[in-house]
Each structure stands twice: as C-alpha cells, then as structure tokens.
Simulated assay, not measured.
Amino acid sequence: MRFFAGAATAIAVGFGLIAAGHAAGAADDTVASAKSAVARYAGPQTVWEGPTSAPKPVSGMSIVYLSGDEQNDISREYGLFMKAAAAKLGWRVTVIDGKGSPSNWVSGFNQAIALKPNGIAIFADAKSLQGPIQTASARNIVVIGLHAASLPGPNAALHLFVNIQEDPREIGRAEADWAIADSNGKAHVVIITHNEYQIAQTKSDATRDRVEACSGCKVLDYANFPASEAAQRMPQLTTSWLQRFGVPIYITSVGDNDLDFAIPALRSAGVSPNQAKLIGADGNRSAYERIRRGNDYQTVTVSEPIELQAYQAIDEFNRAFNKAPPSGFVQPPYLVTAENVNTEGGKQDVFVPANDYKDHYLKIWGVTP
C-alpha cells in the first residue's frame, strides 16, 4: 500500500507540475503576444491603404457637422478639418454643438435638418438619433457617422451611409495589451467607459475581455457613466479606486478626456506615476503632452487620425452624392508611447500618419494641392 500510495502521490505531483507548466506557458504566450501587438500598434504608418480613385466631385454641396461636444478636443477638431477639406471642393460646412448629451444631440440634429443641407456628419451615437436620422434620410440628406456606431463601415440598420473610425475592438485590445506587456502579465486594471456611445462599449468590452484572458491579470472595476459627467465623477472614483485596490494600478479609458480629471486626485493622494499608469484613447493634445513629460501618470494613448478621417468624411460624402458605394477604408490604430510620441505628427500633439493622405485625397478629387 505504501508503494501504491507513494506512486499515486508522485503521479499527482507530476500532473500538478505539468498543469503548472501549462499555465506558465499560457501566461508567457499571453505576454509575448501582447508585446508583439504593442510593437505593431506603435510602429510607423507610412503605407496608404485608402482609396486610389473617386467620382468627380459635385459642386456647391452644403454639409452640417453635429459635434458631440465642442469642449472635447477631438469632436471640435473634426469640424475644423472638415471645413478645410470641404473648402478644397468649394463646399460649405456648418458646425452645431451637441453639448455632450443625447438630448442635445437630438435638438442639434433637428437644427441641422432645418438648414436643408445635402449631408449631415455626426460625432454622436447614431442609435440615440434614429428618429431624426430617418427623417433626414426620407429627405434625401446623406448621414455619415464619425465614431457614431460600434464598428466602422456602412450601417444600413442605423441609416448611416458609412461610419468612420478605427476599429474599436483593436483600440480596446491595444490598451489592454500595453498594460499586459508593461506589467509582464500582472496588471490590475480599472476600465472606464461611456456606454451611451456604442463605440465606447465595443472598445471597453474588448479591453475587459483581453485583460481577463491574461491569467495573472485582474479587472478591478468596469466603470460606466455619461461622458459629460467626467469632471464630476472622476476625482471621487479615482480616490475610491486607490482606497479599495491600492497600487500598482492601471486605469484605462475609452477617451483621454476622462484622465484629465483623474490626475489631480492621484497627485493629492501622493501616488507615484510609476504606481498608477493611465491608458487612454483618441489622442487628445493633453494626452500627448502628458506622455511627453513622462512623469504625469498617462503612459500611452491610442490615437485617432482626426484630419485624415475628416478628409475621408468629405470623400465619402462625395461618393454618396454620386450614388457610388463607400470606399471601405479603415485606418489602423496607432499606439502613442514615450518612445514614439514625437513621430507621426506627435510634435504637433496630433496623430498625422506618414502616408501622405491629404495628397492622395486631393489627387483622386482632381484638386491641385
């Protein structure tokens, strides 16, 4: 009996070691995969992957841009860049401020319809605007989304000719992968989201799923609140996370704007930037500045190419006005880090891919630069 008992013990120990080895191997694979993904997302974007032809632009078109919130850098800059791109074709763009809430988006969209434009672009969640969008469609007004749905591309269900954005699933994974790689598979992560936007939920769910796939990592909290309440919510939430979970801690957000209001709470608590690392998305100017300083908590952002996407919006409107299909173009995400913060437009605190997108669009429109 002793022999068999000893053998059984040895076998059990052996299986335990094998299981532990498999777990360690899986953890190593997760970290290696994350580090490889980070290197890819942070690499230069020199190749033009967009359209190489376009219909002849229609003259005299008018567009209204419904900005989700003019207090948000990204939302405001879309309007500025769309005006500049439209001017190349002799078009006019009018901007309406949606002031950060679904009720204001509805009233703003109705104002846009009243102007009788040829097209309306929205940086607001299309699902919350279905009544007004259907009214616009019935009046032959083309509606294009910028971050307006869960995924890029045409969306007949939401009555969008096309929705322009990077793939939020990739953005969410890029945020998680950076935390996994930086922590060597031991990241404890808070995830901030604003699920009044479909894109935000898709992005934050991808972050959560990727962190949960890392055996040594942990999702500490999944915090969902309206984006317009960030200034009021973030200080108290940040203090609460520090009290409940301690440090080290990684805090990810679907937008850099949230992080503006987390940093004062971290400073007041005397937390070292090495112990609380903030990971954002969109590529706000404040995010670039924090990453460049290197001691201001934010370590990375997944940046959107705002000017490129504004030019794409004008190009997609032209296709719609000519009864042509959307271009199918989706620009890959770009991870801004301390190592590459001054490249790909970073010296101007914006993501400007090195793929000559402006010249490509002007060329296919038949416009002299």
Rank of each mutant, 00 (worst) to 15 (best):
I180R: 01
P152R: 00
R233I: 14
I306N: 10
D177W: 01
S101V: 15
N195K: 08
S240H: 05
L259S: 09
S59I: 02
A213H: 08
V367P: 01
W48D: 05
A138N: 13
E229I: 01
P248Y: 13
G50V: 05
P264N: 03
G60L: 08
E196V: 07
R293D: 15
K203M: 11
I113Q: 06
I249M: 10
D260E: 13
S204R: 02
L220W: 06
N340E: 09
V64K: 00
Q309R: 11
P332S: 10
I199Q: 05
D182E: 14
G6A: 07
Q111I: 12
I191E: 07
L362K: 06
G280A: 06
N274T: 15
A7T: 09
Y334A: 05
H188V: 13
F225M: 06
Q298I: 08
Q348I: 12
L335N: 04
C217F: 09
H188Q: 15
D69K: 00
S62Y: 09
E70D: 14
S103G: 06
R173W: 06
I122P: 02
N322C: 11
I251R: 00
T52H: 05
K56I: 09
G328E: 03
G14E: 08
D97E: 06
H360G: 01
A187D: 08
P264I: 03
I364S: 03
Q312A: 10
D356W: 02
T301F: 02
R267S: 04
V58P: 00
N195E: 14
T202H: 01
R267W: 07
R92L: 13
G90F: 11
F351T: 07
D29S: 14
K186M: 14
A24K: 10
A10T: 10
A148R: 05
L278A: 05
A8M: 11
A287T: 03
R169A: 13
F245S: 10
G216N: 08
T135V: 14
S103K: 08
V336G: 01
S303P: 01
D356V: 02
Y311E: 11
D73H: 06
G153N: 05
S150V: 08
T135M: 12
I192Y: 07
A276D: 09
T239L: 00
D29E: 15
A32L: 12
R290Q: 14
A149Y: 06
T94L: 11
N110D: 15
N224E: 09
R210H: 12
A313M: 13
A179N: 07
N118G: 08
P152W: 02
K203A: 03
T193H: 02
A227M: 09
A148Y: 03
G346P: 03
G270Q: 04
P152V: 00
T30Y: 07
F245P: 01
P51H: 05
G21M: 11
A7P: 00
L66A: 05
